[in-house]
Computed example of a mutant assay.
Amino acid sequence: MSRRSESYKSLQQVEASSENGTSTPPRALLSLCSVWETSIQKNDKLVMISSTRNNNNNKKEHMTVFHGSKAPKLSITRYMERILKYSRCSPSCFVIAHIYMERYFTKNGGFLTSFNAHRLLITSLLLAVKFLDDRYYSNAYYAQVGGVSTQEMNRMELEFLFSLEFRLFVRTEVFLKYCEKLDYVGEYQIRRPIISGNAK
């Protein structure tokens, strides 16, 4: 591949520290959060419309171990920044986590909402870090960063792994294609909810 996407390049950059000691997230991660935020907003509206109707034929959101009893106040973007700050994982792990989430929805159905986004992100990111990075923190540490108990973190990890049938490998060309898609997020807002994907 002769040309590397701008998002791919931004994932490889060493981010300069800001005045308060935190790192500025790479452009690719901000683009990825834009995709998530747009999907969450659209899917939340669909769930709300569905819940206000009394027709039993309407599809309702399927509750999973990744659903919280209430939507966190922290946005998915701020949540990503918190994870990036404290986990010190490679930024590429977030793109891999996104691919895992698409695989999850493709196999199990459902969609990203404010009730499941945070738990799906911390779980898929944990698996991406374990698969991609040489060094990483324990499940207990990630549970603390993600705002869940260690027991919940372990349970979600197992559920996610079995849902994906332990298929965690991502081909280089697939990863690069996702990075290329992120190049256009800033210029063209992605309105499609994350319901299914074609990650191989």
Rank of each mutant, 00 (worst) to 15 (best):
R3D: 09
R4E: 13
S7W: 06
K9S: 08
K9I: 13
K9P: 00
S10K: 09
S10W: 07
Q12L: 15
Q12V: 00
Q12H: 10
Q13G: 01
E15S: 14
A16R: 14
A16S: 14
S18M: 14
P25Q: 07
P25C: 06
P26Y: 05
S31R: 01
W36N: 00
T38G: 01
T38M: 04
I40F: 07
M48T: 13
I49M: 13
I49Y: 10
S51T: 05
S51P: 00
T52I: 12
K59A: 09
K60V: 12
K60Q: 15
E61I: 14
E61N: 11
A71D: 08
P72H: 12
P72L: 13
L74H: 00
L74E: 15
L74M: 15
R78K: 15
K85H: 15
Y86L: 15
S90F: 04
P91D: 01
S92T: 11
C93W: 07
C93N: 15
C93M: 05
F94W: 07
V95S: 03
V95Y: 02
I96N: 03
Y100R: 01
M101A: 04
M101C: 08
E102P: 00
F105C: 04
T106H: 08
K107F: 05
K107M: 13
N108L: 13
G109V: 10
G109I: 10
T113Q: 08
A117K: 05
R119M: 08
L120K: 04
I122T: 15
S124V: 04
L127A: 08
F131A: 12
L132W: 11
D133A: 04
Y137I: 02
Y137K: 15
Y141Q: 11
V145S: 02
G146V: 07
G147F: 11
V148T: 10
V148A: 03
S149I: 02
T150K: 14
Q151H: 10
E159G: 00
F160T: 01
F160H: 01
F162I: 10
F166I: 00
F166N: 11
R167H: 12
L168C: 06
E173Y: 12
F175D: 01
L176R: 14
K177S: 14
E180W: 03
K181I: 00
L182D: 08
Y184F: 12
V185R: 02
V185T: 08
G186M: 10
G186R: 11
E187H: 06
E187C: 04
Y188H: 09
Y188K: 12
Q189D: 10
I190C: 09
I190L: 05
I195S: 06
S196N: 13
